[in-house]
Simulated scan of single mutants.
Amino acid sequence: MRATFNTLFGRLFGVLLVAIVLAHVLAFFWFHHYGPPPPPPPETFVEQPDGTMKPLHRHHRPWFGGPVVPLTFQFISLIIAAWYGAKLLSRPIQRLSAAAERLSLDLDSPPLNESGPREARQAASTFNLMQKRIREQVSQRARMLGAVSHDLRTPLSRLKLRLEQIEDTKLQGQMRQDLDDMIGMLDSTLSYLHEQRTGETRHWLDVQALVESLSENAQDQGCDVQFAGSCAPLQVQPMALRSCLNNLIDNALRYAGTARIELTDSREAVVIRVIDHGPGIAADKREAVFEPFFRLEGSRNRNSGGVGLGMTISKEAVERLGGRLNLEETPGGGLTAVMWLPRA
């Protein structure tokens, strides 16, 4: 019997049952105390001096002797029981939702407390088991990545050394370029997978100072990067945001030769726009470029550098911050990357 009432159904049923029983018990004792309303006495009249007949005043039953008080109590008690029952139903769901949100930001977040009714304990236990398995899979993949990195870099390094023995300089240059491309693809892939498994802590950051610093660094290297706008500090993952901005600026410089960064601040969010006037991207391809290793034909292809992971890393970094990254057409031609970062 105790196990039955330790379930969510049992607790909710018990609360409603107690409320209904108490309400009816009160109504029973209330009507029993005051009894049924007495039958009306025969009408008695008194003759007035002017000869008219006036009925005698009868004593009326008090208003609280009727059904008003017990029915009001029943109504209030059922409202309280319904409110408490709704709280019982929503509390485990809220706990699961909060734990899922923590897990999406950090795989090493603390496990869910396995307490409460039986259904809530079962759901918490399943959630904790899922979190443990995800951590184990990610750890196993990290070990595999380390082995792949070591096993691939060693023969690639030996091949680069053996290139010096080739007398044909043209062939040597072509092979060296191919090896550099392979090493670059390996580094980009490992970097992307590392970004996926890294849970960086959020800190307050002067985003305006970061954008100004990135613009000045690019200008010092001879790149045309302009900056405009201002914003207040924002709570973000600093390394993830820096990586995202670097990728967007590099893309703009690679395909357009110039870039302009605009900051817009509001109570709800900070919006960062990276604008270029290059060849742009067709509207039906703008979502596809966020897929890993997706390559566009034409002017934005591998001949311009990269292996198709920069936009993927940028989008995932922004989504970890609870924001959005979209691509829009620049007025007059080109591409604008719009980064929306919430303040809440």
Rank of each mutant, 00 (worst) to 15 (best):
V69F: 08
V18K: 05
F64E: 09
G35S: 06
A81Q: 04
Q122Y: 08
P49K: 04
T52M: 09
G116F: 00
L89I: 15
A99N: 01
G51A: 03
A123Q: 01
I20L: 14
G65C: 14
L96R: 01
W63Y: 11
F75I: 08
L129K: 13
Q94I: 07
Q122M: 15
I80R: 05
P117M: 02
I93H: 05
T72G: 12
V68F: 15
L26K: 01
H32Y: 11
L96H: 00
P55D: 04
P70Y: 00
F31S: 06
P38F: 09
S109R: 06
V21M: 05
G35V: 04
R91A: 15
Q74S: 11
T126F: 11
L107Y: 12
H33D: 13
Q74H: 11
R121K: 08
V68G: 14
M53A: 08
A123G: 03
D108W: 15
D106F: 07
A99P: 01
F75R: 09
A23V: 01
S115G: 10
E47A: 12
L88N: 06
Q122L: 15
L88Q: 09
R91G: 08
F28E: 02
S104V: 08
R61Q: 14
W30P: 03
P55C: 05
T72A: 12
L71Q: 11
S115Q: 12
S115L: 07
A99C: 02
R121P: 00
Q74V: 05
A82P: 06
P37D: 12
V25P: 04
G116H: 04
P92S: 02
A19T: 04
F127A: 01
P42V: 11
E43N: 09
A124G: 02
P42K: 12
G51M: 03
P67L: 10
P42S: 09
L112Y: 02
F28C: 02
L89W: 15
L71A: 10
G85D: 02
Y84T: 14
P49N: 05
R102P: 04
A120P: 01
D106T: 07
A82G: 12
A120K: 03
K54L: 14
